[in-house]
């Protein structure tokens, strides 16, 4: 799970600036850049969060002593 989200994070994290740079250089249309950003920016946000979130393993219980 984490491996996949990490890969998605890297991929979308590369696509977003790449599309912006390519559009600035005139290689692709602005509309293509927007389409790329609309699709990959949310994926980047979610996959980033999923990558750095706490692990799914059982956490410790700090208040178990009560």
């Amino acid at each position: 799970m984490t491996g996949k989200t990490k890969a998605l994070m890297v991929l979308s994290g590369l696509i977003c600036p790449a599309s912006a740079i390519l559009a600035a250089a005139g290689a692709i249309d602005a509309i293509v850049m927007v389409a790329a950003l609309v699709i990959f920016f949310p994926l980047f946000v979610i996959s980033t969060f999923l990558t750095w979130k706490a692990s799914d393993h059982e956490g410790d219980y700090p208040f178990i002593g009560y």
Binding site: V34, L37, V38, I39, F41, P42, L43, V45, I46
Partner: peptide, 12 residues
């Protein structure tokens, strides 16, 4: 994901 996506479009 869709929620974020539509507002990215809106910003553009």
């Amino acid at each position: 994901v869709i929620m974020i996506a539509i507002w990215v479009g809106g910003l553009y």
